[in-house]
């Protein structure tokens, strides 16, 4: 029983990290209606930023979260304005190809500048763990879990209450109508892309204390994030949150009882079941 409980708690903690990666992806999909293939590569760049902030300037990853998320927002905004929006000519297939191209450029640039070495940060609290009876909760994962929930809540409130949030929802629902009522659709696209990458910046800060960074690290997370987005409902924040936690728990529990390899089948099985029973995902998307 303790083993099962530990597996569930561990899954929730891991799922929270997946949520943060997926929430940026779902935001970008919900508004721009494209899959951001550069998501994994941008996560990797965020993790390198955190790594260098720690190793060069001694800045704690958690304290650097606002800075890295802010930088992520700026990078995302400029990337959309300068490259994606400019060269896509309004065609979704062009955006897909551009983001795919960007991911290749970023990964190879990282390989060139940072080499293929994996980098780890060793912090005073890296090995800290809360032991509640027979339940083991690593400190870094507990922080990630709490931060992910807070970020999801803040982002949801912002999207539902603020003027920009309303504009984002309007563009997501009907871009031509939004344009007709005076919303600058291109700016909303760029801001949404920026917000999506800001989420990745936050995820990078929360991941680095317990993981490593290498030029290909994004691959480990981006496929699972795609699964969460589809499972939760493309474009849905709540869907990403619930979907991420479900995937985390499913992966952990099945891994614990079926083994690390066979346990991985839980994710595609859940994914296929949801597509069969509720093809739109667990929650309705931004539209």
């Amino acid at each position: 029983m303790d083993f099962l409980l530990n597996a569930v708690v561990n899954g929730l903690m891991s799922g929270a990290i997946y949520v943060l990666v997926a929430i940026g992806l779902t935001l970008i999909y919900g508004v721009l209606h494209i899959i951001n293939f550069a998501h994994g590569a941008l996560l990797m760049l965020g993790m390198y930023v955190v790594f260098f902030l720690v190793t060069r300037w001694g800045l704690d990853p958690y304290l650097s979260l606002p800075l890295v998320a802010g930088a992520g927002f700026a990078v995302g905004y400029l990337l959309y304005r300068g490259v994606i929006g400019r060269f896509s000519h309004g065609k979704d297939e062009n955006i897909l190809l551009i983001t795919l191209g960007l991911s290749i450029i970023f990964e190879n640039a990282a390989l060139f500048f940072f080499s293929a070495h994996t980098n780890i940060i060793d912090l005073d609290y890296t090995d800290d763990i809360f032991i509640l009876g027979e339940i083991f909760i690593p400190y870094t994962k507990a922080v990630s879990f709490a931060a992910a929930l807070v970020i999801c809540l803040v982002l949801s409130l912002y999207i539902s209450r603020s003027d920009l949030g309303k504009a984002i929802r309007a563009v997501a629902k009907e871009r031509h109508g939004a344009r007709l009522v005076g919303i600058n659709v291109e700016t909303v696209y760029a801001l949404s892309y920026g917000l999506g990458i800001a989420c990745l910046g936050a995820a990078a800060c929360l991941l680095m204390p317990s993981y490593y960074v290498s030029p290909t690290v994004g691959h480990s997370f981006v496929l699972i994030a795609f699964t969460i987005v589809v499972l939760g409902g493309m474009g849905s924040f709540v869907g990403a949150l619930v979907g991420g936690l479900i995937i985390g728990v499913a992966e952990s529990v099945s891994g614990a009882f079926l083994g690390e390899q066979l346990g991985q089948i839980a994710i595609p099985i859940i994914f296929i079941l949801v597509l069969l029973v509720k093809p739109t995902g667990l929650f309705r998307g931004a539209q």
């Binding site: 903690m13 690593p138 993981y211 997370f221 690390e260």
Partner: peptide, 16 residues
């Protein structure tokens, strides 16, 4: 216990 490459977490392995 077999694991994939890359592995995202070994928390379950540690618990086991």
């Amino acid at each position: 216990i077999a694991h994939d490459n890359p592995a995202r977490s070994f928390d379950n392995v540690a618990l086991r």
